[in-house]
Design a protein around this nucleic acid. Structure first.
Lengths: 189, 189
DNA sequence: CTTTATAGTAGCGAGTCGCTATTATTGCAA
DNA sequence: TTGCAATAATAGCGACTCGCTACTATAAAG
């Protein structure tokens, strides 16, 4: 029956995701656009390019490029061209975009009905799953800045040892495209 | 920080679902078609109509109608018109369709890496979430036949008290569109 | 024997999605 | 310094999803 459980888990994940998607058609945007918007809202200033969003969303750059252009057209994000590298673009979420993000519904409510402790356990299992899938497709982890191997604290506050920049306090709670786990060194499986 | 946990849970669910979707582009079909195919493979003979799949997949009948036609075009399912009700159609998964379904990959492997006990707990939480969302959108539960309020055992074996038909043993492990929880009688919330 | 409800579908418009070019730009190396 | 491979983003294609509004059968209820 363990195999039955695996099948069921897979179906449940798919189904709950699909419900979240059906739920995400609110507020003039579609589920994919909502996911991209949510990513940008949670990503730090080094991780708001189309290619980063594509990595996170497990889609191609071409697809994400279209999605972001649609969001920009609707005024939910704004393009910010880099001065140092003229190829790259960073998108910032506007106030309207932030507001649209708050209009979630069903899944939020369902989560609130679960005991906080259970949500924590659920998070743990889901994180393991994400990590497991990531391992196979050689994807990036996109963890919180402060949980990264390159995160340091010094006299000024926080610092990223990889990019060699100081970090504002709030930034350490954002998602980073360069994130790498501290607990590595398990050579494979 | 409990609010942080809720946001994270939502993001994780979305992300793992999206990974599963990206994963589902294997074998000449897209993720939606795979989901519909998987549903038909798990549904009992009373639950394989377009409208039932639409209910399960949280999509409109129109959309699902197209998806099923695409699957039929590819030979993964076959149309079976009902003789009693000439309006309704039931789809059956072909051998080829069954074979395509086995070609999953990343998510399956990641699930296998989790301890079975953790998978069981995960299932429990996800089921509660699904139930919670369903409650809000007044959707059907689509549980296993044998866990239904109308499931009975008699001299012949199993029976459905709602549809008043005898059931073959394997059918009690299939998903049913008419499924209703036994533990009801909580008038609302 | 008409309403009224139900099951499935067609067609529309916007958009996703993988794919293959294509255009800028950057960085490295001869 | 010129040349060229890598990188970032995008355009365009074809198949498809998706919500939506009709629309056609058929079935059931009055």
């Amino acid at each position: 029956m363990t195999n039955q459980n695996l099948t069921e888990a897979k179906e449940l994940i798919d189904r709950i995701g699909r419900m979240g998607a059906a739920d995400g058609w609110n507020g003039d945007i579609n589920p994919t656009q909502r996911a991209a918007l949510a990513y940008l809202a949670r990503a730090n200033r080094f991780s708001r390019a189309p290619s980063h969003a594509a990595d996170y969303l497990c889609a191609t750059r071409g697809t994400v490029s279209q999605t972001l252009k649609a969001l920009a057209r609707k005024g939910l994000i704004v393009e910010q061209r880099s001065t140092t590298d003229k190829r790259s673009i960073s998108y910032a979420v506007t106030d309207i975009g932030q507001h649209v993000l708050t209009q979630d519904a069903a899944l939020d409510a369902a989560l609130k009905q679960l005991p906080p402790a259970e949500v924590a356990i659920l998070n743990g299992s889901l994180q393991k799953l994400v990590k497991g899938v990531l391992q196979q497709r050689a994807g990036r982890t996109f963890g919180l800045c402060r949980t990264c191997r390159y995160h340091e604290t010094n006299a000024n506050g926080a610092r990223c040892a990889l990019l060699d920049v100081d970090l504002r306090p709030f930034e350490t709670n954002e998602i980073c495209h360069e994130h790498e786990d501290q607990t590595s060194l398990s050579p494979s499986v």
